[in-house]
């Protein structure tokens, strides 16, 4: 009798095992199908993806993995395009000063020039060399910032010292154009920033402000503490930037339509915005064409 019971028990047990195994197999099969879909980049079967079941969650995760992989591939493709356009932009930018240097040195080599002419041509050559020098320096800085070879070290520090640093680096340019740099009074606030690089970002903004100011004009620097960011504002009065151009000015090699023949390569603002981005801040511009332009740098406040 006991044997019969044992046999029945064993049969039930085996049956249960069999059913379980079938279910497992079905689930495996379904997950497998989902992964195949993901690998092949096919749309996951809607029945699997949008139900409140475990299998559906797995399907969803598999789809996410596939999406990330695809996004990474697209990213690589975009970067390639960026590099290509960058190289063409760059060679274009370097052509003009190189051609000028070539021309003036040729002229100087030919001889038969008056002392005055020689001095003038030498000066032009010098100016264009300076321009190339400045461009290569900027390009190196830019690429090192872009690839992360330069690591910014944002630490809590007062913004006054940083602002003072940036002002001293543009004093000369301001004096040449007879532009006054005035600082409004504001309480010194501690913000998270890398002093050296933030001063550089700010100096680029100031340099532009001086360059595009009306002669004998003034540039005003102010600061304001917001709940999360400390805002440093640089305002100048001059030709200004049209609203439709305002988001373009931070692009690499972008030169404003109003820039005219003012010297520049379209790198300064781009580098400034890179620097701000690297330390968790950002820049905005606000301008009324023909009147004033304000650039605002936002630095993260120290966390409580």
């Amino acid at each position: 009798m006991a044997i019969v019971w044992v046999m029945i028990g064993a049969a039930v047990w085996a049956g249960t095992l069999l059913v379980c195994r079938r279910r497992m197999e079905r689930a495996y099969g379904a997950v497998d199908a989902v992964l195949d879909d993901a690998l092949a980049g096919r749309e996951a079967a809607p029945l699997a993806a949008d139900r409140d079941t475990r299998l559906s969650k797995l399907a969803h995760k598999a789809a996410k993995v596939a999406r990330l992989r695809e996004a990474a591939a697209c990213q690589v493709e975009r970067e390639k395009e960026t590099i290509q356009s960058f190289i063409s932009d760059m060679s274009h930018q370097m052509k003009t000063p190189l051609a000028s240097i070539r021309m003036y040195t040729d002229l100087l080599g030919e001889g038969g020039l008056s002392q005055e002419e020689r001095e003038e041509f030498l000066r032009y050559t010098r100016e264009n060399t300076d321009k190339l020098q400045w461009m290569t320096d900027s390009l190196i800085k830019m690429s090192r910032l872009e690839i992360g070879a330069i690591e910014l070290a944002p630490v809590p520090a007062g913004i006054r010292g940083t602002i003072a640093d940036s002002i001293s680096s543009v004093q000369g340019a301001a004096a040449r154009r007879d532009v006054t740099i005035r600082t409004e009074s504001f309480p010194d606030a501690a913000a998270l920033h890398d002093r050296r690089w933030t001063a550089e970002a700010l100096a680029n903004i100031l340099e532009n402000a001086v360059k595009y100011s009306a002669p004998h004009g003034q540039v005003v620097i102010g600061a304001e503490r917001l709940p999360l960011f400390t805002k440093v504002v640089v305002t100048n009065w001059g030709r200004g930037i049209a609203p439709e151009e305002q988001s373009a000015v931070f692009r690499r090699f972008y030169r404003g339509k109003n820039a005219g023949d003012t010297d520049g390569a379209g790198l300064g603002l781009y580098i400034s915005s890179l620097i701000m981005e690297k330390q968790g801040g950002y820049i905005l511009v606000d301008s009324v064409p023909g009147q004033r332009t304000s650039f605002s740098l936002f630095l993260q406040n120290c966390k409580e």
Binding site: L226, P227, L228, F229, K231, G280, G281, Y282, L284, F298
Partner: peptide, 12 residues
């Protein structure tokens, strides 16, 4: 002012 703060943070 708060808007600028929140949107800046959203972007970052």
């Amino acid at each position: 002012r708060t808007s600028q703060d929140v949107l800046g943070l959203l972007k970052m």
